[in-house]
């Protein structure tokens, strides 16, 4: 047995998260034996898919040191655009494309304010969130927009092999694809570099603005896709849908090991983060915990995630400083000897 590999594994965030998820699931199973029944597991997979899809785009932004607080509103708007297009007589695949294009435009607008006007992503997307929320009410008159096309509904409710909900499969495929982009492509490495040190990345010849624009556009599209899936599930697009989408996505990403400061993280952690949150939420309902305590628990998990991120980042910085000091001492020693 490779002791150092095992030590590294036990020290890794992923394993710790998996252990916590397993422990929480076991606890809920002890309290309610139906918790790990097939129907409930399918339900959890379904519940993961909407936030998980938004989390994919958000994770890339966070790794690059950016954030989009308007993701929930973009998801809502994407669903509404799709429903309006369906009502106007467009076949639903084209309506889906229209929604994705709309999401891309939303992302482009965010990127403009971040890159050209140089407003911090946190602040500008917070303002844009208000604009989109208002526009949603204007466009829909605060009424849900129906999307009564049975074939379209399958996007939100079909299953693969009779077990895996289609939205869950879409989420997993996206996570695997974007995970490969992050770890196997130059573009992915550039995202990490920008998140780690934007100035250094620029000096290395990377164009941060171009990459950040691509990430915001991508995030807008994924949020719109999540909104369309939700619309298919609900058979209409509600102006109140996805209001906590961005916060849920950030919580899942940070819980999964993605640093809010950027430069660190991966899709595997995102998956486990969203799984933990969904298992936690489903479990609290399954055991019948009073609602006010559920809200406390959900808030606590966000605080836990952000605290863990803070301490991880601090430890990582200390480790890097230690390694740098060690490297410089070795260099100085070698120079003396030579």
């Amino acid at each position: 047995m490779n002791i150092s590999r095992l030590k590294r594994a036990f020290g890794s965030n992923y394993l710790a998260l998996i252990a916590v998820t397993a422990a929480v699931s076991l606890l809920f199973y002890i309290l309610n034996h139906d918790f790990l029944a097939l129907d409930n597991i399918k339900n959890i997979m379904n519940a993961m898919s909407f936030t998980g899809t938004i989390t994919v785009g958000m994770a890339l932004l966070l790794i690059a040191g950016e954030v989009d607080l308007a993701s929930g509103a973009e998801a809502c708007f994407g669903g509404i655009v799709c429903a309006i297009a369906i009502q106007a007589g467009l076949p639903w695949p084209l309506a889906l494309v229209a929604a994705l294009a709309f999401g891309a435009c939303c992302g482009f607008i965010n990127a403009f304010f971040v890159n050209v006007v140089h407003i911090m992503g946190f602040i500008c997307t917070l303002g844009i969130l208000g604009i989109y929320n208002g526009l949603v009410s204007v466009v829909t008159d605060n009424h849900p927009v129906p999307a009564y096309v049975p074939s379209f509904w399958k996007l939100g409710s079909a299953t693969v092999f009779g077990i895996f909900p289609l939205p869950f499969v879409i989420m997993v495929v996206l996570m695997v694809a974007y995970g490969l982009v992050l770890t196997r492509t130059n573009f992915g490495r550039n995202i990490f570099m920008i998140g780690g040190n934007r100035r250094a990345a620029r000096l290395c010849g990377i164009n941060p603005s171009r990459i950040v624009t691509a990430l915001y556009v991508n995030n807008g599209m994924l949020a719109a896709l999540a909104g369309v899936i939700l619309t298919a599930r609900m058979h209409n697009a509600s102006p109140m849908a996805a209001s906590t989408g961005a916060i849920d996505a950030i919580t899942a990403a940070v819980l999964g090991g993605i640093s809010f400061l950027g430069g660190v993280g991966g899709m595997g952690g995102c998956f486990i983060g969203i799984l933990l949150i969904t298992v936690f939420s489903a479990g609290l309902t399954a055991i019948g915990l009073p609602s006010y305590w559920q809200i406390v628990a959900q808030g606590a998990i966000l605080v836990f995630a952000l605290s863990a991120d803070f301490f991880n980042s601090k430890a990582r910085r200390k480790r890097l400083e230690r390694d740098e000091i060690k490297r410089r001492r070795e260099f100085a020693r070698n120079k003396e000897e030579s």
Binding site: A47, M234, A241, S291
Partner: peptide
Amino acid sequence: LTGGTVSAEVGYDLSSQTVTAN
């Protein structure tokens, strides 16, 4: 209230979670 908003999405989640767990 646990879902944060008055929406069909929250009703869906609560209903499906309760039904499959009982």
